[in-house]
Computed example of a mutant assay.
Amino acid sequence: MQMWKQAIEHALQKTRENIERFGDQFPHVSEKGKYLLNDNNEWTDGFWSGILWLCYEYSGDEVFKTAAQKTVESFRNRLGTNQKLDHHDIGFLYSLSSKAQWIIEGNEDAKHLTLQAADVLMSRWRAKGGYIQAWGPEGDPENGGRIIIDCLMNLPLLYWAYEHTGKEEYKEVAVAHADKSRRFLVRGDDSSYHTFYFDQETGEAIRGGTHQGYTDGSTWTRGQAWGIYGFALSYRYTKNPLYLETSKRLAKYFLERLPEDDVVYWDFNVAINSDTKRDSSASAITAAGIIELLTHLEASDPDRNLLEGGMQRSLQGLVKGYSTVGQPAAEGLLDRGSYSVRGGVSPDDYVIWGDYYYLEALVRLDKGIQGYWYERK
């Protein structure tokens, strides 16, 4: 579709400019129209690396490849110094940087680095509770028993490590965490909790909650998006039909609640008025996740048309109403992403993960470039 090509060309040009703007630093979220940069110490820094690799695969331009390779060296240094890796987002960091390099170039050093990163994620497994701890050190009184739905997107790092080593514990931990997430984060009406708490000693379920959603019982749209894509990826690796069913359920819930312009607000339960914040990144993640989900559905699946049509509507809504096409000074690809509305942190700004998933969805539709969550067959 010509619309996708034009959006991709805009992303390529913007990324070329951003390579010069950002230098050796990494974009996170924006403030007053400028990306806040860091020295590779945020959970989001893999998304910039992923954007560079996607641009290189799509265009073949060595400028993107050189910049992407430099980011992998930065991630090698980060792992060596263990700089701010006391969280579960290791998959976001290393799947889109070193694993991407392995997938594209077959670089053995990149493969080894990615396996080391998988071991860092494994260190967050809490055997007593049977889950991967999201944030903070083991035994932390606030977060020691907490899982969050985002972690489903980090599990592919462990599945991939199992495929490359044959060590069953990688897959066992990923499956156990996916099962626990399905049981406790997904509600009976197909909505989702952002987080859930367990007793650290016994693993007994305590309660659902939120960190960035409207209320503990509401449905944060980005959390629902993580679930759609994350369960689809767990299905790809395990072929457990329950994961596929769960991804579909979450996706249908999301699409049935699209607003008039097809790009969601930041929470499905928040009151809608002229000041209500959007989250374009939630729609971008969902579009990319449904593209993955569709690859696992039969042509005769009764939900296929709903899902494919909703994905197309979401992506067209982003391109037509939220892309920065025609804004030469813009640094991001999408307007109106939200990091933390409740916390007042970049509630209506560029967010680098939104840019990544938007571009991933576009290049997959246009050229079949699948992203870096699994090996290409």
Results as ranks from 00 to 15, higher is better:
residue 49 S to M: 05
residue 50 G to Q: 02
residue 50 G to P: 02
residue 52 L to F: 07
residue 52 L to W: 03
residue 53 W to F: 08
residue 53 W to P: 01
residue 54 L to R: 02
residue 54 L to H: 06
residue 55 C to K: 06
residue 56 Y to T: 04
residue 57 E to V: 04
residue 59 S to W: 07
residue 59 S to Q: 11
residue 60 G to Q: 01
residue 60 G to Y: 09
residue 60 G to F: 08
residue 60 G to V: 03
residue 62 E to V: 04
residue 63 V to T: 13
residue 63 V to Y: 09
residue 63 V to F: 12
residue 63 V to I: 14
residue 65 K to F: 08
residue 66 T to Q: 15
residue 67 A to S: 15
residue 67 A to D: 13
residue 67 A to H: 10
residue 68 A to Y: 01
residue 69 Q to L: 14
residue 69 Q to C: 07
residue 70 K to A: 12
residue 70 K to R: 15
residue 70 K to P: 06
residue 73 E to S: 14
residue 74 S to W: 01
residue 74 S to H: 14
residue 74 S to R: 14
residue 74 S to T: 13
residue 75 F to P: 11
residue 75 F to R: 09
residue 75 F to S: 02
residue 77 N to P: 15
residue 77 N to A: 14
residue 77 N to I: 09
residue 78 R to C: 08
residue 78 R to Q: 11
residue 79 L to I: 13
residue 79 L to V: 14
residue 83 Q to S: 15
residue 83 Q to G: 13
residue 83 Q to R: 15
residue 83 Q to L: 14
residue 83 Q to V: 09
residue 84 K to H: 14
residue 84 K to P: 00
residue 85 L to F: 06
residue 87 H to T: 10
residue 87 H to N: 01
residue 87 H to D: 15
residue 87 H to C: 13
residue 88 H to M: 13
residue 88 H to C: 14
residue 88 H to E: 11
residue 90 I to L: 12
residue 91 G to M: 08
residue 91 G to K: 02
residue 92 F to G: 10
residue 92 F to R: 04
residue 93 L to Q: 04
residue 93 L to M: 15
residue 94 Y to F: 04
residue 95 S to Y: 00
residue 95 S to E: 10
residue 95 S to V: 12
residue 96 L to T: 02
residue 97 S to L: 11
residue 98 S to Y: 03
residue 98 S to Q: 02
residue 98 S to E: 06
residue 100 A to W: 07
residue 102 W to M: 09
residue 103 I to F: 00
residue 103 I to G: 06
residue 105 E to Y: 06
residue 105 E to G: 00
residue 105 E to V: 00
residue 106 G to S: 14
residue 107 N to P: 01
residue 107 N to Q: 12
residue 107 N to W: 08
residue 107 N to D: 13
residue 107 N to Y: 09
residue 107 N to M: 05
residue 108 E to P: 06
residue 108 E to T: 11
residue 109 D to W: 11
residue 110 A to K: 06
residue 111 K to E: 03
residue 111 K to W: 09
residue 111 K to V: 05
residue 112 H to G: 03
residue 112 H to A: 09
residue 112 H to C: 03
residue 113 L to I: 05
residue 115 L to K: 07
residue 116 Q to I: 09
residue 116 Q to T: 10
residue 116 Q to E: 12
residue 117 A to E: 08
residue 117 A to D: 06
residue 118 A to G: 12
residue 118 A to H: 03
